[in-house]
């Protein structure tokens, strides 16, 4: 990775419906840009290797690891983070299922889980527990043993019905 440079580049991204323009170092990670540039600290960083999935966000409608993208790669794209899902006053359906099923403990992996599940529900059949487990296997959780997360997704998939 190149060292510090004064050559800042302009980037414009739309995050949770709001468009932001900033001048940033080209090497800045998207995860750092969201967290420290835009103050959206709901996206968490667990490994910066793309392994743990805590930093999962939605880019152009599909889930992506924000630690594996440079912020400049998001130029012109639509991003959704956990802050776009729901609020403490009005949880999204996925967030509500997590609370109902106790799908979180320390909460650190949770934003990434929720964003990954939004993608799974939109694009994957999730007809069996094996399929749900497979779908969740890219996101690490150290607290729950996944069992209650699987229960939450099972309920969400049942509610959604078969993919059309």
């Amino acid at each position: 990775m190149s060292e510090h440079t004064d050559d800042l580049v302009a980037v414009t991204v739309t995050v949770n419906g709001m468009t932001h323009s900033r001048r940033i170092e080209p090497r800045m990670l998207l995860s750092d840009f969201l967290r420290h540039g835009l103050g959206l600290t709901g996206t968490h960083v667990g490994c910066e290797h793309g392994v743990c999935g805590a930093c999962t966000i939605s880019v152009g409608g599909r889930s992506a690891r924000s630690c594996l993208m440079l912020a400049v790669m998001a130029e012109g794209l639509e991003i959704e983070t956990i802050e776009g899902q729901g609020t403490p006053e009005a949880l999204s359906r996925i967030q509500k299922a997590f609370q109902d099923h106790h799908g979180l403990q320390c909460g650190f992996c949770t934003p990434g889980m929720v964003m990954a599940i939004a993608d799974l529900l939109a694009h994957h059949p999730l007809e069996t527990d094996d399929q749900i487990r497979e779908g969740l296997s890219g996101n690490l959780c150290r607290c729950t043993g996944y069992i209650n997360i699987i229960a939450a997704v099972r309920e969400l998939a049942r509610e959604r019905g078969p993919l059309t």
Binding site: T41, G42, E83, Q85, T87, L91, F98, Q99, G107
Partner: peptide, 11 residues
């Protein structure tokens, strides 16, 4: 859960 689920926790 309300804060932790919505990205409004503070680590």
């Amino acid at each position: 859960d309300l804060r932790l689920l919505t990205g409004t926790g503070e680590y």
